[in-house]
């Protein structure tokens, strides 16, 4: 009974945090919810392997990121296979890169225009740069913790962050130019 209560407390404490990271990585409310559930199911199954060398936050973030990566890689594989279908059965390009909030039309986050552009730009980053940017500038974690979560050195994290910002600026610059051209 004690263990069940402890687990419930864990879920109540961390579910929003986990969901937030998952959402910012996959940009789909339904998928982010599924991933959040999967994270806690994994935690329940593997709690005995938690070695306490890292903090519980770090452990949870690591599991969350791995689950998001699994989803994104599977999505990429389906996309590549989909290309073969497209040759014979072409369908409309998905020209709208904005997050899929149609699963949750009453999403609490109101996407202001600038935030939408930021999301588009973040979404265009390579996965490791995207992850580091999200953990550093959205979750506001210290670099030392990010290094632990991603099993990289602090120097590697700094380098990824720098490249992420350069690429974000490039992408936003393109968006700015397109906006001005349109108007």
């Amino acid at each position: 009974m004690g263990n069940e209560n402890a687990f419930k407390m864990l879920v109540e404490t961390y579910q929003h945090k986990i969901y937030n990271i998952a959402y910012n990585l996959v940009f789909d409310t339904g998928i982010a919810e599924d991933i959040t559930q999967e994270v806690f199911v994994s935690v329940f199954k593997s709690i005995l392997t938690f070695n306490e060398k890292s903090s519980i936050d770090t452990w949870l973030y690591r599991i969350t990121i791995n689950k998001c990566y699994d989803y994104l890689r599977a999505k990429e594989r389906r996309k590549k296979l989909g290309f073969i279908n497209n040759v014979f059965f072409p369908f409309e390009d998905d020209a709208n890169p904005l997050p899929a909030t149609n699963h949750n039309p009453e999403s609490q986050l109101v996407h202001k225009e600038n935030t939408s552009y930021l999301i588009i730009a973040i979404n265009s980053l390579p996965l490791n740069q995207k992850t580091v940017f999200i953990l550093a500038h959205i979750e506001e974690l210290p670099q030392k913790e990010i290094a632990e979560i991603m099993s990289l050195s602090i120097k590697a994290i700094e380098s990824l962050l720098q490249r992420a910002k350069i690429n974000l600026r490039k992408k936003l610059s393109t968006i700015y130019d397109r906006r001005n051209k349109a108007s």
Partner: peptide, 25 residues
């Protein structure tokens, strides 16, 4: 414009779950 957008990254921290997931978990 670019700096303003990059500085608004903190707003993406505010995503909240609509429903409590404990029972589904």
């Amino acid at each position: 414009w670019i700096e303003d957008i990059l500085n608004s990254a903190g707003e993406l921290k505010n995503n909240r779950l609509k429903n409590d997931l404990l029972n589904s978990i």
